[in-house]
Simulated scan of single mutants.
Amino acid sequence: MREKKPLPDRVRRWAEERIGPVASVRDASHNWDRSRVWELADPGGARWYVKVSPSAKFFTRETRAYRHVVPALGHSRAPQLIDSRAEDLALLLTVAPGAPAPGGDLSSASWRSVHEQAGMLCARLHEAGELDSADQAEAEGALQAAADGVEKHLGRAGDRLTGDEQQLARDYAARLRRVGPVPVGYVHGDNQPRNWLWSGSAVALVDFERTRPAARVQDLVILAGTEWFDHPDRERSFHRGYGRRLTGVERHALRCLTALDAVNCLGWGPANGHPEVTARGRRTLDRLMREDRP
């Protein structure tokens, strides 16, 4: 059983200065060491969340996202930022409606509805305002940066990959460097159902610590290796909500990115005790090996 994480006293005092007395605190962190999230409730039952970011980089990304990008999603489609405290990397947030989609025991039709609405929200996020010159440069360099990370990922994965699998990853990194221009914008960065809240009629997005300027197709990598792998109907529904299918260049980039993601999963998953991430990487890499090295 995961050990519960206590809310730091100074963070609680700061939150109470903004929302009033807190009657109860519940640890709502994800099951990994650096996740620190608490649900607060006042004596009347009103609820909020406090999140302490795992790093200054994530804190900066998330506060910026809530102030400048998330409003494009629309009313009740994401939490709202009440305040932030840089000294503690803390954010105080409203509660968005719904519960994480994976815990809802949804029917096939409901899952298609979830994906369609998630696609619509991703389109809004990806198109949330013009990028300034610095953001444009970061976004246009995102695929190159992903390709440049291959040796780091291979080093972490170590002997979990065969020599042929290592070469496959390097080949896909080389192909990614040659991909032409693709649409860019603000991406969620961890776009998957655990960050989609489903109320039974609408989806809301949460967890924007990885939101940044990038190639829009990078937001589809996790979905391609998990949800859509076994459920092509969900992929079709997502793109219906998104408003378009991917271009040929985007599809090529996505295949390259899934290969690099697989290697990253095979390094990160075992090191952090996440067998589901490890399994995602292994399944993707096995599929690519079957298709590319029959």
Rank of each mutant, 00 (worst) to 15 (best):
R77Q: 08
K5Y: 05
E16R: 07
Q80V: 07
E62V: 04
W268G: 06
P79S: 12
S53V: 00
D171S: 13
D164T: 15
K51L: 02
P54I: 03
T162M: 13
Y66N: 03
E235S: 12
R282V: 03
G243V: 12
R283Y: 06
K4Q: 14
P193I: 01
A157R: 00
D9G: 13
Y66C: 00
A145T: 14
V69M: 02
V263M: 04
G158R: 03
A214N: 11
E151W: 03
R112D: 14
V22G: 08
L91C: 09
R177C: 13
G180E: 09
V221S: 01
A262R: 00
A174T: 14
D105Q: 15
L7E: 00
F59C: 01
R283I: 08
Q144Y: 05
A134I: 12
E3R: 15
S199V: 12
A157K: 04
A224G: 11
S133G: 11
A202K: 08
C256Y: 00
E3K: 14
P21R: 15
R13T: 14
A23L: 15
A137H: 05
A41R: 06
T247D: 11
G44K: 11
R26I: 10
H252V: 01
R18P: 02
V70D: 00
A118C: 09
A279L: 13
R255G: 01
A204D: 00
E151S: 08
R234E: 11
L7V: 10
D132W: 06
H68A: 12
D105L: 12
D105M: 12
A173D: 04
Y242W: 09
L73Y: 05
P181K: 11
G119A: 10
V179H: 04
G180H: 09
P181F: 09
N191C: 12
P71A: 08
A123F: 00
N264G: 10
Q136H: 14
A96S: 13
D33C: 10
G185S: 10
